Amino acid sequence: MGFRRLKTSLQDVYLIEPKIFGDDRGFFLELYNANKFKDIGLGHLNFVQDNLSFSRKGALRGLHFQRPPHAQGKLVSVLQGKVLDVAVDLRKNSPTFGQSVCVELDSEKRNMLYIPEGFAHGFQVISDECLFLYKCTNFYHPEADAGLAWDDPTLNIPWLDIPPVLSQKDQNHPHLAEFDSPF
């Protein structure tokens, strides 16, 4: 058993593919194994909190992050359904500052995305319903909660061609040009 780590267009953001064992009964896979993550160069991760969200088609959650010293790295996956998952580099000194990567995560492929501290994260649900799992490297702190406008035209994120369903909070985040990155 193992995992495969694939590079994305953003340094330090990785697509993770688990080894899946299937037969006529169904399938088995490991969602996380610290020793095997060490084998693919992600042994430094220390997950302290798991979060689960349920969303319906079109729901758009993001773009969220936590400010230092409570910044979070996230390993995200879809347990049921399919999403367009997005990470935006907020690291001021990064050559990819303000750039994004978009990947489809789904419960058939069982693929995951690792997003380190210093990135905003969001997703939009493609399937009728979705169960979305976040493994986080730091605890949630409400006072550190922050976000970036999901529809900022400078980010050029190819969101789905369906009306987004947003929370009130996600309708009011600043654009990148109005934002002083804490990373």
Rank of each mutant, 00 (worst) to 15 (best):
Q99R: 14
L160E: 05
F28P: 00
L79I: 11
N33F: 03
L166K: 10
C130D: 06
D170C: 06
H44I: 12
L63Q: 05
G43F: 13
L113V: 00
G62D: 04
G122H: 07
H175L: 15
D180K: 14
G58L: 07
N51L: 11
Q66P: 02
L176R: 07
A146C: 04
P142S: 08
F3G: 05
L52W: 11
Q72G: 01
Q168W: 10
L131V: 13
K109T: 08
Q49Y: 09
F65N: 00
V101W: 02
M112R: 12
G81T: 13
K82W: 15
L131F: 15
D23I: 04
A120N: 03
K169Q: 10
Q72M: 10
D12L: 10
T8V: 05
D12P: 08
F179A: 06
Y134R: 04
G2Q: 09
V13L: 08
V103N: 01
S107T: 05
S107Q: 10
C136Y: 12
F97M: 00
R5D: 08
I115C: 08
L79A: 13
F139Y: 10
D152P: 11
F27D: 06
P163I: 02
R5M: 11
V103Y: 05
I126N: 02
F47I: 15
A146M: 05
G62E: 02
L15E: 06
K36T: 04
E143F: 12
I126K: 05
L79Q: 14
D23K: 09
F132Q: 02
G118E: 08
L75S: 04
K7F: 12
E143K: 14
L160W: 02
L52K: 10
S167P: 03
Q171G: 03
K38M: 09
L90T: 02
D24W: 15
N172A: 12
K169V: 07
E143W: 08
V13Y: 05
N35R: 15
I16E: 07
Q49T: 15
A146K: 01
K135T: 05
T8C: 07
E129L: 14
L79P: 00
R25C: 10
L131M: 14
G41V: 00
M112G: 01
P68L: 09
Q49S: 10
D106S: 07
G122S: 09
F21Y: 15
D85C: 11
K38L: 09
L6Y: 08
G26T: 05
I157Y: 02
H141Y: 15
K57S: 03
H121E: 01
Y140D: 00
I40A: 11
L6E: 15
Y32H: 11
S167F: 12
P69M: 13
C102D: 03
F123M: 04
L155E: 01
L155A: 02
A144H: 11
N111Q: 13
K7D: 14
D151K: 06
Q72W: 08
K74F: 05
V125A: 05
R56V: 14
E143S: 02
H175I: 00
I115G: 08
S181A: 11
D106L: 06
V48K: 04
L75M: 02
T154C: 15
Y134K: 01
A87S: 01
E17Q: 12
Q124V: 03
A177H: 09
V86K: 01
L31A: 11
D128G: 12
K57E: 04
Q124I: 08
H64G: 03
K7P: 00
E108N: 15
G147T: 03
P163Q: 08
D145R: 04
D12H: 04
H44L: 12
G147A: 03
